[in-house]
């Protein structure tokens, strides 16, 4: 889109401000809507904030996991490589709902009584592990796309392996991986709805409750869908602008 190309920095700021305004201001116009939406406006707003918070927490942790496991897959140390392969294979081969239920029901059994984790944390952990596995492949491809000659040049200049990674490999591989990572983040907005299964009161759960009380599923689910569309649009606009912003080195 042209307006993103021309002013990526402003689009990013705009999308972020828009998202914040939407999350904290949506209750005002919604409360003017007819029943059953009007009286549930605050619930919808709160549910949206939980959905976005879950997405942001799981999304950021997922990027960190993706970078670590993506590096691990390229590691010269075989056991670490096998571990990362196993992780990706396990997560991608099982349903997300099962992973969420597993973290919620099974993990507390390994923890001492005093160290119980909230439903929200369980959902965040499961979602982070899930999106992390998908990110791993993107990061790995990104790292492989960095020309080996640039790594050699950095090493020849005396940069340490860590400096070479942080200054040369990571920024360039993230630029390559970004479209795919952004895709995963947009999916995560929607995937976070599965957290309703472990009674996290996010957007889908709010919709479910409101329709159960009002017996009016159609307006309730239409409202829920509209909110999701606005959220995913904000996220994709944000990441598209970020992509353009980071693209400077390739611009002619």
């Amino acid at each position: 889109m042209n307006w993103i190309r021309q002013n990526p920095a402003w689009v990013m700021v705009g999308a972020m401000v828009g998202l914040l305004l939407f999350l904290w201001g949506m209750a005002i116009p919604l409360s003017a809507a007819p029943a059953p939406i009007g009286q549930a406006a605050q619930q919808f707003a709160e549910g949206s904030r939980i959905t976005v918070l879950l997405t942001l927490i799981a999304g950021s942790a997922g990027v960190v996991i993706g970078v670590i496991a993506g590096l691990g897959k390229l590691s010269a140390f075989p056991p670490f490589r096998w571990l990362c392969d196993f992780y990706v294979w396990l997560i991608r081969g099982t349903p997300l709902l099962l992973q969420i239920l597993f973290v919620w029901l099974a993990v507390p059994q390994f923890l001492p009584e005093s160290m119980q984790i909230s439903d929200f944390s369980c959902a965040a952990i499961a979602l982070a592990l899930n999106v992390g596995a998908y990110n791993t492949e993107c990061v790995r491809a990104g790292i492989l796309a960095v020309p080996q000659g640039q790594v050699e040049a950095a090493r020849a200049l005396g940069l340490s392996p860590l400096q070479t990674f942080m200054d040369i490999v990571l920024p360039q591989s993230m630029r390559v991986a970004l479209p795919a990572l952004a895709n995963n983040l947009a999916s995560l907005v929607k995937d976070s709805s599965l957290a309703y299964a472990i009674s996290v009161v996010e957007l889908t759960m709010v919709g479910y409750r409101v329709q159960a009380e009002s017996y009016q599923p159609i307006p309730v689910f239409l409202t829920t869908a509209c909110i999701y569309l606005i959220l995913t649009t904000a996220f994709t606009t944000l990441t598209a602008a970020l992509e353009t912003q980071l693209d400077v080195g390739r611009k002619r």
């Binding site: 640039q150 050699e152 040049a153 950095a154 020849a156 200049l157 005396g158 080195g249």
Partner: peptide, 16 residues
């Protein structure tokens, strides 16, 4: 490596 610089056939400038 501090004392020895290298120039490559394919330049290898940091493109970002």
């Amino acid at each position: 490596r501090r004392e020895v610089g290298m120039v490559f056939q394919s330049f290898n400038l940091f493109s970002h």
